[in-house]
């Protein structure tokens, strides 16, 4: 099976499982992004047809939500908190360090495809600011040093 046909098969399977839920679009988009890491443009017509929506409506929903992405992310996604609590504990300086260390800005992926950097507005870890998430792993009281070691550890795991 080619990559593209296996992708369509995955998408179809997710749609079949979820399409009868009331308000199925978000669960389907989550399913697709969980499986593929993003919601590819090729999935839009298939999803639209299954839910009896227009492609524009599906695209509109994908683009409305910050979490859904239409391009492939790096191997690991870093969500760095920009909200007030983290700012009060040096979040801005950490943000500068992270961007310099990775050599990218928010919404970008490193050239080696390892890390994608996204801003997040609160991880609910405000008692341990500044906070970040690498994939589903959460980190608190992050410093420049602890960021570097977290990145190194994540790279080793990869």
């Amino acid at each position: 099976m080619t990559d593209s046909s296996s992708m369509q098969a995955t998408i179809q399977e997710i749609i079949t499982t979820l399409k009868n839920k009331p308000g199925a679009l978000l669960p389907i988009l989550h399913g697709v992004q969980n499986a593929l890491g993003y919601v590819p443009a090729e999935s839009v017509p298939t999803i639209a047809k299954a839910l009896n929506l227009s492609r524009a409506e599906v695209h509109g929903v994908i683009s409305f939500y910050h979490y859904f992405r239409d391009n492939k992310p790096g191997k690991h996604t870093i969500h760095l908190c920009r909200a007030e609590s983290c700012q009060s504990m040096g979040g801005k300086q950490l943000e500068n360090h992270v961007k310099t260390r990775l050599g990218i800005d928010f919404h970008e992926t490193t050239a080696d495809g390892k890390f994608t950097l996204e801003p997040v507005y609160c991880l609910g870890n405000c008692a341990c600011s500044p906070a970040m998430q690498i994939d589903e792993e959460i980190y608190g009281r992050v410093t420049a040093n602890s960021f570097d070691s977290a990145i190194n550890e994540t790279e080793e795991l990869a």
Partner: peptide, 8 residues
């Protein structure tokens, strides 16, 4: 449980 998608 239904998940949101990062929209405040």
């Amino acid at each position: 449980v239904r998940l949101g998608a990062g929209a405040y």
